[in-house]
């Protein structure tokens, strides 16, 4: 539950994700007004891409960011995720962060924890990472999902040793938090897999 807001429980087919927006952030991202301005910019970018019934994969690149404070992370990351998770979301948009440094991750992890959110982070050097609070079953499923790139429930159950019902529950959680998506054949991919398509 996201602070009383209902979220759509149905998975969304991302297999034909046709729209990508890349927002390269830079300099010192501090204070709430700065965060609000950036969030508004990202929302406008997504709105301008709307029109066809396609979804947008929005990539926030932190490679050039020096300082990111908690307040700014809350305004940019948490509020963007919350807005596009809710029933009244203005568009179908999914978010990935790229090139996070250790000190950025601290602020982002804090806001994700506060709002019970999950977020996929990718770097050029390492595999996709799931940020936010997760339990051991969720971590196991995530790691298996990332290893395979695309997997069925049965495969994930085999890989993790978890019962199928448990895998199903974890995947449902991932759909709700928009860090994974289903293909038309029912297989599942982590959000990061769609970057390569």
């Amino acid at each position: 539950m996201l602070h009383g807001r209902k979220v759509a429980p149905l998975p969304i087919d991302l297999s034909h994700v046709g729209r990508r927006s890349v927002t390269s952030l830079f300099s010192n991202l501090v204070t709430r007004p700065t965060g609000r301005a950036i969030r508004t910019g990202v929302e406008s970018q997504i709105a301008e891409m709307e029109g066809a019934p396609q979804v947008t994969l929005s990539i926030l690149d932190f490679g050039q960011v020096r300082v990111l404070d908690y307040s700014c992370a809350d305004e940019i990351v948490a509020k963007l995720l919350l807005r596009y998770l809710g029933d009244e979301r203005p568009a179908e948009a999914f978010f990935i962060v790229r090139n996070l440094h250790e000190h950025h991750a601290e602020a982002i992890e804090a806001v994700l924890e506060r709002h019970e959110l999950l977020l996929v982070a990718v770097t050029d050097a390492e595999g996709p990472e799931l940020l936010g609070v997760t339990d051991p079953a969720q971590r196991a499923v995530w790691e298996a999902l990332v290893r395979r790139g695309r997997a069925s429930r049965a495969e994930l159950a085999d890989d993790t040793g978890l019962p199928r019902e448990a895998v199903t529950a974890v995947l449902a959680h991932f759909y709700l938090k928009r860090v994974a998506a289903v293909h038309v054949d029912g297989t599942v991919s982590p959000l990061s897999a769609f970057l390569q398509e």
Binding site: N28, V30, T31, R32, R66, V67, L68, D69, Y70, S71, H101, H103, E106, A107
Partner: peptide
């Protein structure tokens, strides 16, 4: 960097 973040928060 965390020091700058701390200072930003405390000044805000």
């Amino acid at each position: 960097m965390a020091f700058s973040m701390l200072l930003s928060e405390v000044s805000q």
